[in-house]
Design a protein around this nucleic acid. Sequence first.
DNA 1: CAGAAAGCTGTATATATTTACAGCACTGCT
DNA 2: AGCAGTGCTGTAAATATATACAGCTTTCTG
Lengths: 220, 220
Amino acid sequence: MNRSKRDKTVEKPLTPRQREILSFISEHIDINGFPPTRSELSSHFGFRSPNAAESHLKALDSKGVIRLERGRSRGITLTTLAQASLPGTQRTNLPLIGRVAAGSPVLAQENIEDELRLDAGLFHPRPHYLLRVEGMSMRDAGILDGDLLAVHRTPEARDGQIVVARIEDEVTVKRFEHAGDHVLLHAENPDYAPIKVDLRRQALAIEGLGVGVLRRFAES
Amino acid sequence: MNRSKRDKTVEKPLTPRQREILSFISEHIDINGFPPTRSELSSHFGFRSPNAAESHLKALDSKGVIRLERGRSRGITLTTLAQASLPGTQRTNLPLIGRVAAGSPVLAQENIEDELRLDAGLFHPRPHYLLRVEGMSMRDAGILDGDLLAVHRTPEARDGQIVVARIEDEVTVKRFEHAGDHVLLHAENPDYAPIKVDLRRQALAIEGLGVGVLRRFAES
DNA sequence: CAGAAAGCTGTATATATTTACAGCACTGCT
DNA sequence: AGCAGTGCTGTAAATATATACAGCTTTCTG
């Protein structure tokens, strides 16, 4: 047989579902500081049996993206392989996002202006990228034009938090407030009115949470 | 004595033993990817009772360096406080200066509140320490109460630069302006008048130059 | 010296967690 | 058709973990 395929390492063609699982594990570690249990996985994905999670984990383990430790609770480790196939985990190099082109994902290659080496542990929860803030709408929160906002990716926000939100393809930084069917996005500057988003009519996505600010004074 | 109620948790003078425990937890996370259990802690330190670990954890929690989650196995989270109070392994450790006691050198041991690991190359020129800014006198420059000012030590300043100045034993952050025999230290807030220093009568020392600002949003 | 706080031992127990066994439905191959 | 792989449900243990209660040293301090 001339299958000249040296399939020694058949690589890891993760299924879409498996990618979701892996992704969740990574996020869980990011947010909580430790991996999820089988039942936490199950309740997140709606499995009625912890065994669904178990078999996914085994599959991920045999594909080499995670490592399971027998007998230890939360004994899940992401391998370097996993880090490669996931966006923005645990990296020391935080991408610096400049202007976000309308409609493109924040972390799209075209939006990455630079990469900054920075101890990700400085902020908590861990930031996934730095967003260059444009305009003075958050002036009174001490966030000025050109400042870098450290952003932790998560779709959940609580009232009072500073969020990176996307309204109909436009990305903006505001203070979040939830009110029934509406969401209020407050600027921190009397010159700007709060943005009222009707969730029934407009698409609103929380791209992430501001976890810190970084400003570099211009050299002169 | 009205101590400012800035810190929601109690003080934080970790005992040497507690530091050891904290250190081990941090290492365990680094190596294994998840925190240790009570019994893993116990077997590492030779405790014969898991309760020894338990009470240490509770102490660390009440001192604010870790956060325990009830009912979750390995539910231990390092707070940013912990990251600062742990021995920095690789990056440059910038001392974090809190309140500067009148008359003491800025970098005197007594003024060092913490150490932050952070890529010093982030700012230019290279910062020597981080100074926690008190008060709102620089508000309109986007420097708020509690912000960390990255400071490069140098006795020379040019007009318009943000400096850390010492006037007769008092340390302050202001914008620098030189005018003949006088120096003007401008606040960036209309509520504060500029400070006019007569160099012939008063001692003025430039402690350093602000090279950047770092703000960490409070965990919630 | 009393009392508090740090550090432990020892015992228990309710839960949290892992993990095996047995199946069912669906898909893409061969 | 048959077989392997993916994705699940359901049930059941074994065992890993968290965590309360009771008490015993030291050390330090008012």
